[in-house]
């Protein structure tokens, strides 16, 4: 049972403010992903939770206990590092058993727990090897096994898959998700890879410039981004934006079309995901600039109202460069943002 609570945490490195007033609660057994571009503060936040970094301000609570004054070893956490940090002078067995030995557990219990987690991570045949004799994927497994063997309340992962090749990453993603769900541990997972975040998380905290912009379930973050940054960061190709001027009574003028929208003061930004449009009789007039057949879909980069505008269309359609399309946005998928505050407008 371990809920994590972060209260008003801020971190400054000299003049540089790495984190601004972070508040976040991670429920027991929840899989929370901290997602953001490099330098957004996600790793700093993770390291503050782990105790490898001290917060300038604020409190960290784990399992109802305030821990921000404790050493990493006293916080009930385990961590998986980006470069695995598998000890080169120890065998795989001793690596996995390292934390257990530090707890001075009896030999047979260490052996039992090491073997169990090694089997769980499918590395039971590697126990006698040294880290130099392992592939990147195998080292990754050792690092995860070492953390799991501790049976921690909380497991912290810092871009654990970023050094693996694409295929292995996909495989490990699914496996890690399964193993963690089974172990019933609370997990915080840092990544810059939105696919990883979407596929693994119970909840995603999108971070930008030292702040959490939105913390919500993957589908919520995707469908209802709370800010322009989230909308642009999540989804590939990214969301399209067009400026909208008020046309009275909840109607908005977008690239020569009048579209239903919120009752708000203008101007606003109209936003739509590329896959939420289809060719139709009426809609946005788009001139195709680049046509990329991707097999499953057709990605068309067009120009609407003098702006780049992407549409993911059915691959059966034939579109050539220079064609003029009329694209109708799916009404329930249209989102609106205030260009001043960059926040979503309901």
């Amino acid at each position: 049972m371990a809920e994590i609570e972060i209260r008003n945490v801020a971190k400054r490195f000299g003049d540089y403010q790495a984190l601004h007033d972070i508040n976040l609660t991670v429920a027991d057994q929840e899989f929370m992903v901290l997602l953001g571009a490099s330098g957004c503060g996600k790793t700093t936040l993770l390291r503050i939770i782990a105790g490898l970094e001290t917060a300038t301000e604020g409190e960290v609570w784990i399992g109802g206990k305030r821990v921000d004054h404790l050493a990493p070893k006293d916080r009930g956490i385990a961590m998986v590092f980006q470069n695995y940090a598998v000890f080169p002078h120890l065998t795989v067995f001793e690596n996995i058993g390292f934390g257990l030995r530090m707890q001075k557990l009896p030999n047979d219990e260490v052996k039992q727990r090491v073997e169990r987690t090694a089997t769980l991570m499918h590395i039971e045949q590697l126990l006698k090897r040294y880290s130099g004799e392992l592939s990147g994927g195998q080292r990754q497994r050792v690092a995860v096994a070492r953390a799991l063997a501790m049976e921690p309340d909380v497991i912290l992962m810092d871009e654990p898959l970023s050094n693996l090749d694409a295929l292995l990453r996909m495989e490990m993603r699914a496996e890690l998700k399964g193993v963690l769900a089974e172990s019933k541990t609370t997990a915080i997972y840092v990544t810059h890879d939105q696919v990883e975040a979407m596929s693994m998380a119970d909840r995603i905290s999108v971070m930008h410039q030292g702040k959490i912009v939105q913390a919500a379930s993957p589908i919520e973050v995707y469908r209802n981004p709370s800010a322009v940054f989230v909308a642009g960061f999540i989804g590939n190709p990214p969301m399209n934006f067009l400026s909208a001027t008020p046309a009275g009574d909840g109607k908005w003028q977008v690239a020569g079309n009048v579209i239903d929208g919120p009752h708000a003061k203008g101007p606003l930004q109209f936003a739509i995901r590329p896959e939420d449009m289809s060719p139709s009789e009426s809609g946005l007039t788009a001139t195709a600039k680049v046509v990329e057949p991707l097999g499953a879909h057709l990605l068309v980069t067009c120009e609407v109202d003098g702006k780049i505008f992407r549409a993911v269309l059915d691959s059966d359609l034939t579109v050539k460069t220079g064609d003029v399309l009329t694209l109708a946005p799916q009404a329930d998928r249209v989102r609106w943002f205030n260009p001043e505050t960059t926040l979503a407008v309901a």
Binding site: P72, K73, Q82, N83, A85, P88, M102, Q103
Partner: peptide, 21 residues
Amino acid sequence: PLELEEAAWTLGCTRLTAFTK
């Protein structure tokens, strides 16, 4: 790598034991 020491800290070592082990 500092990461090795940090890993040891999260696995139950103090600064001193991480250094010696």
